[in-house]
Design a binder for these strands. Structure first.
Lengths: 156, 156
DNA sequence: TAGAACTTTCAGAGATCTGTAAACAGCATG
DNA sequence: CATGCTGTTTACAGATCTCTGAAAGTTCTA
């Protein structure tokens, strides 16, 4: 078994893990294909061939991946086809996305407190929830920023 | 519209958000029902009535929620029925769970590097990935521990 | 502007997943 | 030990979701 094949397997395995974690299966496969690809960028047709899926499926997958900041369209000189590649700093974007979820959870808790009041069974439970998520969010944001800074320094 | 009804709506809304984030819809509904409940604990029958679902659905939901540490069975004195309640420190458990995912991502990256080698297009991409997730995991663990410590102090 | 090369959209098929209802198992009590 | 009450499992039905194939749309070239 050659390295190429083993990489492909590793890509599929990671895609499956990401799917477990809530990401669309095909979306995850497209993402890992780009991540594990030996090429700098891939066209939609490349992805179709690599993953044995239709062009429509590729289209919807990239439509989900680009807004999140995981992949990007790259200008393709001399070719009319769109080229896609894995974005630098993609992981930090993904984490920021999850951080947004933390804020949402905090807001939801606050909303519940406003209805139930602080001094109730529900209120106390929601109080813990709110405190936890505001704490987490407050800590995570600077953490990601620090990483971004360190990473941009290393790259230059 | 009374407060009770508004709480129920808030619970359903949060459940929907959690479902977006990958959690099973019914599992999320059971969890939020317990979270927003005015009672200290609820029986399976309570949950059936509250959410209009069958006992089987409740069973599978709690089977998922308990191992994660989000809810717990509580000894029910005088009643033969199982009582469930939202766990103290549940959110920290949930976050730990997500931290496990971070480790998994790091491992996956390392595996890819071992196959592709450091000095390749793929290798460089995976290198960034590995560094990011080890960094994140290293930071997140003490962060959660700090919270747990602070929280247990506050409670006592 | 016509036409070619791609991409996106959309309706329908296929697969997956989830809840329900009913059978099964466990347990306390009379 | 039998009975009644609960929780759990499983086969099936219903719903949801996702991919495909084809048509429509877009963009670039000649």
């Amino acid at each position: 078994m050659d390295a190429d094949e083993r990489l492909r397997e590793a890509a599929e395995r990671l895609a499956l893990t990401l799917a477990q974690g809530g990401m669309q299966k095909t979306t995850a496969r497209v993402m890992t294909a780009l991540l594990y690809s030996g090429q700098e960028s891939m066209t939609a047709a490349d992805l179709c061939a690599e993953l044995s899926i239709s062009s429509g499926a590729v289209s919807t997958a990239v439509k989900q991946l680009i807004p999140i900041g995981l992949i990007e369209r790259v200008p393709a000189p001399g070719s009319r086809r769109d080229h896609y590649r894995f974005r630098h700093g993609a992981w930090a974007s993904l984490m920021s996305q999850q951080n947004a979820m933390l804020s949402l959870m905090g807001d939801a808790a606050q909303e519940g407190i406003d209805i139930a009041g602080e001094d109730s069974t529900t209120g106390r439970r929601l109080h813990e929830m709110r405190d936890f998520y505001t704490y987490m969010s407050d800590q995570l944001i600077p953490m990601i920023d620090t990483w971004r800074q360190q990473y941009s320094e290393r790259k230059s």
